[in-house]
Write a protein that binds this DNA or RNA. Structure first.
Length: 246
DNA sequence: AACACGGGCAACCGCGTGTAC
DNA sequence: CGTACACGCGGTTGCCCGTGT
């Protein structure tokens, strides 16, 4: 036989939690810890199922939760992580101590999705809506320009669509497969250098973001931002957003 | 003042996976 | 080894509140 049922579904309370229920659950967990969610409501004197208790605790009652609105910096990181992980909210939330997957998911659905749609970007794919299927993808955007002249590179990349487009900060994120080899001075698929992102200003300045350890993503938290200088690939191989999409 | 509407968010639902039995 | 359930996760729902008419 299998396990015992988690709870008797009949007679259980549903809907919004009361202050009294919150206090009972909080006191119980702080005094006893969490060993088995199935037993928590019974031992805490709650007419809720264990699943409901777990959700209430993880999404609202946990003492380590941040109680402030998601900042613009956090939002940018969420966008970066979503371009990498998709709708894996728990994975994304793991990069934000004190934030819950539910909170990030709600923020994505209510704020970021709206922002993307205003910009004509598909929130699911991070690509421009109504792009033809045969357009050059973002990998070619970077690696194919490795040995090309500036004008050749520009021609080769003119239809490239980056994976992430953030018109607010003029930021284009490349995938982890896209790399700039600092020692060779060109774009490469080498595993030796992990270029997580590239930042392009419409004013013409450019910064590169690198991380040395893929696990340290997001880049903005752990990378070194290097100033554009002559040792980098020809600046013309990268384009301001208006050059890419006009 | 009353109503309609939409946004934001907490909570629920259902499924996949891991695991106790 | 198969079954049944706990748990975690992502999708969805529904309530509350602010704003517009």
């Amino acid at each position: 036989m299998g396990r015992q049922p988690c709870c008797d579904k009949s007679g259980l309370k549903r809907g919004p939690w009361t202050l009294d229920e919150d206090q009972k659950l909080t006191n119980f967990i702080l005094n006893n810890g969490i060993h088995c969610w199935r037993l928590v409501p019974k031992l805490a004197g709650l007419m809720r199922c264990g699943k409901s208790c777990r959700l209430r605790w993880t999404n609202y009652l946990r003492p380590d939760l941040k109680r402030v609105a998601i900042s613009e910096e956090e939002e940018d990181q969420i966008i970066q992580l979503h371009s990498r992980f998709g709708n894996r909210w728990s994975k994304i939330a793991s990069y934000f101590p004190g934030r819950t997957d539910n909170e990030i998911k709600n923020h994505w659905n209510t704020r970021i999705k709206k922002r993307f749609k205003l910009l004509g970007v598909d929130p699911a794919t991070h690509k421009l809506i109504n792009q033809p299927d045969d357009c050059v993808n973002h990998h070619q955007f970077s690696s194919s320009s490795s040995q090309a002249s500036a004008s050749q590179a520009k021609e080769m990349n003119k239809d490239a669509i980056p994976e992430l487009i953030d018109m607010k900060s003029n930021k284009i994120e490349l995938s982890p497969e896209d790399r700039f080899d600092h020692s060779q001075g060109n774009w490469t698929s080498s595993e030796s250098l992990n270029a997580e992102a590239i930042l392009i200003n419409s004013s013409g300045s450019c910064n590169y973001s690198f991380t040395t350890d893929d696990s340290l993503f997001p880049a903005s938290m752990n990378s070194t931002f290097l100033s554009m200088n002559d040792s980098f690939p020809p600046w013309e191989t990268m384009f301001p957003l208006e050059d890419l999409f006009l």
